[in-house]
């Protein structure tokens, strides 16, 4: 599946090590995401999936290794330099990486339109009218043309999460990170959110996505990695990884997931 995409990866993670105190949460992760690729990350609770995404978005410092976005080192001035980039440089880099959160994290004091327009106005420096027009375009894309003026508190979970997606993609990021974006939703709302993600995938958005939705991983994912205890334990096309798991741990994990989704 990866064939045909241009050679240089959008995201490149090498030897990533992250510790919380004495526990090693990421234990040498190597990972590439090609342009236009949808890379699905699966793994048991506590295996380090969220931590991986948070490192990639420079939300947390890490202990060793390198993370580059189109060749630019993200959190630090150079690989393993230990010198964290300044606030402004981090902000600029983060502007090119979208993130959609498990708990939505919409700004409760802003309407749907303002939520999406904020980054465009402040980070991208667009005039208000242009930013709001762009926000409206994306809100319409995620099916919320009639909810632009709603505050998050006046939206359903599925609608809130679609605003969250619009907020992230309106910035036209080079990479979109999605962390279990449907796991806080009622089952009947999962579909509407995943459909939006499918649409983005069709349009060529590069995505690194943590999810427990195996059906989605199988039909929308280009590649699946299975994380276990802070390492990538298995990796390959969805059909192979999910259909023919090599390790006992992955087999057990997949059985548990299947039981959960009746």
């Amino acid at each position: 599946m990866t064939a045909g995409r241009d050679a240089a990866p959008v995201l490149s993670v090498r030897g990533l090590i992250k510790r919380f105190g004495t526990t090693t949460v990421l234990d040498g992760v190597d990972l590439d995401v090609a342009r236009g690729e949808v890379l699905v990350v699966i793994g048991a609770s506590g295996s380090g999936k969220t931590t991986l995404l948070r490192c990639v978005n420079a939300l947390v410092p890490y202990d060793a290794g390198s993370i580059t976005l189109e060749g630019t080192e993200i959190g630090y001035t150079a690989p393993n330099s230990g010198v964290r980039r300044g606030d402004r440089a981090l902000a600029r880099l983060r502007a090119d990486i979208g993130m959609v959160f498990q708990m939505f994290n919409l700004f409760p004091h802003l309407t749907a339109r303002q939520n999406v327009a904020l980054g465009l106005r402040v980070t991208r420096g667009m005039p208000r009218r242009e930013a709001e027009a762009r926000a409206e375009h994306w809100l319409a894309r995620v099916g919320l043309a009639d909810k632009m003026d709603n505050l998050p508190s006046a939206l359903s979970g599925g609608q809130q999460q679609r605003v969250g997606i619009a907020r992230a993609v309106a910035m036209e990021p080079k990479l979109l990170l999605l962390d279990e974006i449907t796991s806080a939703l009622d089952p009947e709302l999962v579909g509407e959110v995943l459909d939006v993600v499918r649409g983005l995938a069709r349009d060529g958005m590069t995505m690194l996505m943590v999810t427990h939705e195996m059906g989605f991983a199988r039909d929308a994912g280009h590649r699946v990695v299975f994380m276990d205890a802070g390492r990538i334990a298995e990796e390959g096309p969805p059909r192979e990884v999910l259909g023919h798991p090599r390790s006992e741990r992955l087999r057990r994990f997949l059985r548990r997931i299947e039981l959960r989704t009746e």
Partner: peptide
């Protein structure tokens, strides 16, 4: 999560 969301759209401190 508010601070993280604000970071993720590229806002400075």
């Amino acid at each position: 999560g508010q601070m993280e969301a604000a970071k993720s759209i590229g806002l400075t401190f």
